[in-house]
Structure formats: C-alpha cells, structure tokens
Design a protein around this nucleic acid. Structure first.
Lengths: 130, 130
DNA sequence: GGTTGCGTTGACGTCGGCGGCAAGGTTTAG
DNA sequence: CTAAACCTTGCCGCCGACGTCAACGCAACC
C-alpha cells in the first residue's frame, strides 16, 4: 500500500506519516520508482501512535510501544519499556490533576469573592434598603 | 521607577515587561532620554499579570483584569468582564479535569492489563508450576 | 501528448511567552 | 577619559506536531 491509502485508512495525512517516519516511528519500504510502500502491519502501528498522541504522549514516549508491536506482541503495552512509560505518564497525569485541582479551587474562590464583592458594592450604591 | 527596578521588584525580567507592553498590558511613560518610567501602581499590575499567567491564563484573558485595576478597583476580579473570563476559565478547567480524569482511567487500565498480561506470559513460559 | 492524480524532497508558518543577542545611546563613578 | 551599568529597538530561537506551498517526477487514461 502507498502513502495516500495508508493516510486515508488511518484517518490522517500523508504529511503526518512522513513526519512519523523522520522520527523513526514508521518504516516503509520503497518501490522501484521511489514511492513509499507500507505493509498491513503499519496501519496498526499508525493507529497505536494516534491513540497515544490523543491521550497526551509525545512521539518520543511512543517509540517503545511501536517497538513492542514490531516485536510481535498483540499489544504495544506489554513490553517493559512501554510499562515504564505508562507508569511515568500516569504519575505525570496524577501530578497535573493535583495542580489543576488547586487551580480550580483558586478560580472558584476568586469567582465567589468577586461576585460577593459586586453584590456588596451594589447594596451600598443603592442603599441598605435596596 | 525604571524598567530594571520594576523587573527586580516584580521578580521578572525587563524583556518580559517590554513584552507585556507590546501586548497592551503595561503602559509606562517616557522620560526625556526615552527611558520607560513606571509608577508604583504598575507593580501591582505586573503582579496581577504574573499571578493569572501562573494559573493558566493567556495574556488576552488577563487584559480585563488589568483594566479593572486601572479603573481604581482594589481587586482586578470584580469587574463584569473579569468575572466573565473567570467563569469561562472555570468551565475550561472543569472540562479539562474531566478529560484528564478519563485519560487517567485509561492509563491506569492499560497499565493494569499490561502487567497482568506480562505475569500470565511469565507463568506460561516457566510452566504452570513456576 | 495533454490532463489528472498520485508521489517525491525541502523549506517555511503556526501558537505563546518569553530568552538572548546585536548594536547602539545615557548616566554615573572613579 | 574610561569603564560599568543602565537603557533603547529589533530580530532570531525555542518547543511539537504537524499544515501548506513550491517545484518537480511518475503513472494512467483519453
């Protein structure tokens, strides 16, 4: 299969596939005229890449998962390197959740105080009976 | 006060202050020799900017808060435009928290399955008695 | 042989909040 | 007089995952 077909079937662009290639994630062969040629397994690889990107992985993080698939495993998750990345990413997400949670509290408080302040100002402006 | 002093007192750089100026957030006067001159109130403004940046606001989001301070309010939060931004940001953060939470679940499950799979493979490799 | 639709490489643009450097002018201290 | 420490404008670099365009080659159909 050539690059256009793979792009369509993977729901992405040819530019993206070439980009993955420059970063060592996808490895097509070449036909006589220089066109990239992909086998069926690469579709699975591209799906794995896209799926991991979608949950916040960088291309560098994804490399072990692709290697794991290429090693013949049914899932890209099961190899030690992949597991290590999964652990690290889980920790990062937990960390970020904490920080985002405290940002949320701060925003919430700030909003509550601002509204209270506005109502108070409003009362003073219109008088205590307003 | 000139730009270097304000930068030191605000805990940031002169480059940053000029950047804020190009984006309409800080408005110094000029002395005869062309140097920027800031009054004391600008320190408060810069603190407000930094504080909001730190919790994930963009410079565009911050503009109403600065305007609110300049309008003479004790807090940058109390003006209608600021409250609107606070509401929007709170909604965005809630949204992001949801998505990050589901990413976390997905990561957690993926990790759990990967480990289970590895143990199973290990057992098969070493035999049922291993 | 002309058009259309595929493919190739290469290089620049995007977004945001700056960092850092160049090449100069100003002010102050010694 | 000179050095040091300020200040000015202007412009490139950064990160990451691509989009987009240029300029070209290849293949197939009419």
């Amino acid at each position: 299969m050539r690059i256009g077909e793979l792009a369509r079937r993977a729901g992405t662009s040819t530019r993206t596939l070439r980009y993955y290639e420059t970063h060592g994630l996808v490895r097509p062969g070449r036909s006589a005229n220089g066109y990239r040629v992909y086998d069926e397994a690469e579709l699975r690889v591209v799906h794995e890449i896209r799926s991991l990107l979608a949950i916040g992985f960088g291309l560098d993080d994804i490399r072990p998962f692709v290697a794991c698939l290429r090693a013949g495993h049914d899932s890209g998750d099961v190899c030690p390197d992949s597991v290590a990345v999964l652990r690290r990413k889980l920790a990062e997400v937990d960390d970020y959740l904490d920080r985002l949670g405290s940002v949320r509290r701060r925003l919430h408080d700030q909003l509550a105080r601002a509204i209270a302040q506005r109502e108070e100002t409003c009362l003073r402006t219109r008088g205590p009976a307003g």
